[in-house]
Computed example of a mutant assay.
Amino acid sequence: MFAIKRKTKGEAIFDIINNFGMLCICFLTLYPIWYVLVNAFNNGNDAMLGGIYWWPRMFTLENFKAVFASPGIMQAMWITVAKTAIGTVAHVLFTAMVAYAYSRKGLIGGKFYILLGTITMIFSGGLIPGFLLIRNLHMLDNFLVYIIPFMFSFFDLIIFMTFFREIPEGLEEAARIDGANDWSIFLRVVLPVSMPVIATIALFHGVFQWNDYFTGMIYINNENLQPIQTYLFRVVAQSSSNQMMVAVQGSAINRTVTSQSIKLATMVVTTLPIVFVYPFLQRYFVKGMMIGSIKG
């Protein structure tokens, strides 16, 4: 039988203070989200009176009906879903492919390439040269501006490369004996055993693609190509949300909906999808974050 070690008085006090501090941090982190959610489900005119902190005082779904009644926001949502899905897949595959080449010991000039990549992590060309480059590549008002410029990240390459170097060489040697070439080894051997790092990078880049509003604001003038975050940014930046209120003018909804309530409902609509994805990737994400920290 193992003896149970009793905590000293100092350790017990430390645990109490530590737990209390963590609860405070959790509350400060989660309450703003809860506040937005509560007010999004409350009557807009009633919410203007204030005093709503924990539960909706006049529960309603009219705010969300107004959000989905706007054709502009639904188009923006589809653009966001498409760019997140396509952009994440393209980023993971392309970055993993380059990282696999970097991880090979026989790569000629490998150290030089790593040096060049490290420099790009420290210095960038800037916004104006980037805009001129995108314009010269004819990607202004083009859906590809969400995909091609973000297909590669040297920071993600380092994570991939570290993982690939820990894969036993015997797997590749066995595949080569069976007649597999480099493409077959990468697609059929390396990628299937790399799910932890793939899920980690996919989560990182997927969240970036979903939350990115700056690309649409700088490079897109066509409203049909705006992502939801750019659409929301422009609505919130205006003192009155005319873009969204036009969709419900003259309807019964308009009597219980305000511009502020629509903003809050839009925030909920744009945030919840990416939040729901995280639990499905969490088990891979936790393992992926340990890449390179433990050998063997």
Rank of each mutant, 00 (worst) to 15 (best):
I4Y: 07
K9M: 14
E11G: 07
E11R: 07
I17V: 15
I17M: 10
N18W: 13
N18A: 11
N19T: 15
G21E: 06
M22C: 09
L23T: 12
I25R: 15
C26E: 06
L30F: 14
P32E: 03
I33D: 02
L37G: 03
N39Y: 02
A40T: 10
N42P: 05
N45R: 13
N45M: 15
L49Q: 15
G50W: 03
I52T: 12
I52R: 00
P56M: 02
R57P: 11
R57T: 10
M58N: 11
T60W: 05
T60V: 04
E62W: 01
N63K: 06
F64D: 02
F64R: 06
F68K: 08
A69E: 11
G72A: 10
M74E: 06
Q75W: 01
A82N: 06
K83E: 01
T84F: 08
T84D: 00
G87D: 06
T88H: 02
A90H: 03
A90E: 05
V92H: 08
V92N: 02
L93Q: 02
F94N: 07
F94R: 03
V98F: 15
Y100R: 04
G106R: 12
L107V: 14
G110M: 03
G110E: 04
K111H: 12
Y113D: 00
I114M: 15
L115F: 14
G117M: 03
F123L: 12
S124W: 05
L127M: 14
I128Q: 02
I128P: 09
I128M: 10
G130F: 07
L132C: 01
I134Q: 00
I134R: 03
L137Y: 09
H138R: 08
M139D: 02
D141E: 11
N142R: 05
L144D: 06
V145A: 05
I147Y: 07
I147C: 00
F152I: 12
S153Q: 04
I159W: 07
T162W: 01
F164C: 00
F164L: 05
P168L: 01
E169N: 12
A174H: 10
A174I: 00
A175W: 09
A175C: 03
R176H: 08
D178I: 03
A180W: 10
N181A: 01
W183S: 04
S184T: 10
I185G: 01
F186H: 07
F186D: 01
L187I: 12
L187D: 00
R188H: 11
V190M: 11
P192M: 01
P192V: 02
V193E: 05
V193P: 10
I198Q: 04
A199E: 09
I201R: 00
H205R: 14
Q209M: 13
Y213Q: 13
Y213M: 10
F214R: 00
G216M: 05
M217T: 13
N221R: 14
E223M: 11
N224A: 12
Q226I: 08
Q229W: 04
L232G: 05
F233P: 07
F233T: 13
V246L: 12
A247M: 08
V248Y: 07
Q249R: 15
Q249I: 09
G250A: 07
S251R: 06
A252M: 12
Q260T: 12
L264V: 01
M267E: 07
V268W: 05
T271V: 12
L272E: 04
V277Y: 11
Y278L: 14
F280G: 05
R283Y: 05
R283N: 14
R283M: 13
F285V: 01
V286W: 10
I294V: 14
G296N: 03
G296K: 08
